[in-house]
Design a binder for these strands. Sequence first.
DNA 1: AATTCGGGGAT
DNA 2: ATCCCAGAATT
Length: 367
Amino acid sequence: MGKGVEKRARLNRSLLDRKASFRRRLLTWYRREARELSFRGETDPYKVWVSEIILQQTRVDQGVPYINRFLKSFATVGRLARADLDDVLKLWEGLGYYTRARNLHKAAKKVVNEMEGRLPSTAEQWERLPGVGRYTAGAISSIALGEKVPALDGNVKRVLARLLDLDSNIDDGPTERRLWEVMGHLVQGRAPGDFNQAMMELGARVCKPKSPLCHACPVKCDCRAHAEGTVFERPVRTKKRAVPHHEIVVAAVKKNGRYLLGKRPPSGLLGGLWEFPGGKLERGESHEAALIRELKEELGIAIQPGGLVATVNHAYTHFRITLNVYRCRHVSGTPRAIAHTEVKWVRPSDFDRLAFPKANLKFLHLL
DNA sequence: AATTCGGGGAT
DNA sequence: ATCCCAGAATT
């Protein structure tokens, strides 16, 4: 065994050896200082499930209104299973990562049709549902069922990287496995759900990425990075590379008071959402030429581009776009769903019944 | 092990 | 502008 491994093992033991007092101080802080959130204290597994899916890669403040609206519309797994996917996506509109909505809906139907309407009773069973990975399974089962299983999210990874003063990349496989292992030891005790939530709350409120509030930390005496003065160097992560930029043209084709819309394929980017048709400019191509080409390729129609309605900038995870919206006249051809699963002419008064990508919502009100 | 999936708030 | 969020699925 190398010296690095030996040292790491010794430092990890120091936290785990004081596990009981660590848990006690963290939980005391949590019960006094935790934010009052609508989903906090909820032990209905279905409601915890919906909440955890919505909160994946999503700030609590951003997710809470969506959780409330979703549970109002679909109060039980049966109601969700019977719903149309289009209505589920409409409630998800603007939240992003729409695969979550599709998987949640698929999982609800699975519970009703293949599991006699009974939700899983262990983390291991939860993880077999689509959209439920190790984190979500651990969160649901510890919070709603009291199972002593860890929940390692982005907050907890950062908290542990500082507590243990880890100098390895917290996103690499071996380090992540080690963090799951440590959380697995720490969560053993009463109220595992509160413990998991307390670790996340600490990361969100005190052990923040940029400006950690160590003076307010209930467990700073257990923190290796605090003792070593390396808090600002932890955690170690790989930097993300710059994302490419794409120039996009979009056609607002109006006929008899209705606009031509397409429904995106059920998987992939923005899957299942409705959009104004268009696409990326090719090298050296004009906006007008791109509009004519895209509408021919994707809908099989000829159009005549008119005036520019709006220019919208929007950032995705792996690229960003400038979206140019043009009024267009329909010249010939019946629109067909070539790149879409469905195309139709829609009155503006019916726009609010469909789910659109955020980039489309930014110019919808101008039409 | 890398990449693909949105959108927004903090810095 | 950059980082990162109560991550999971796919390649």
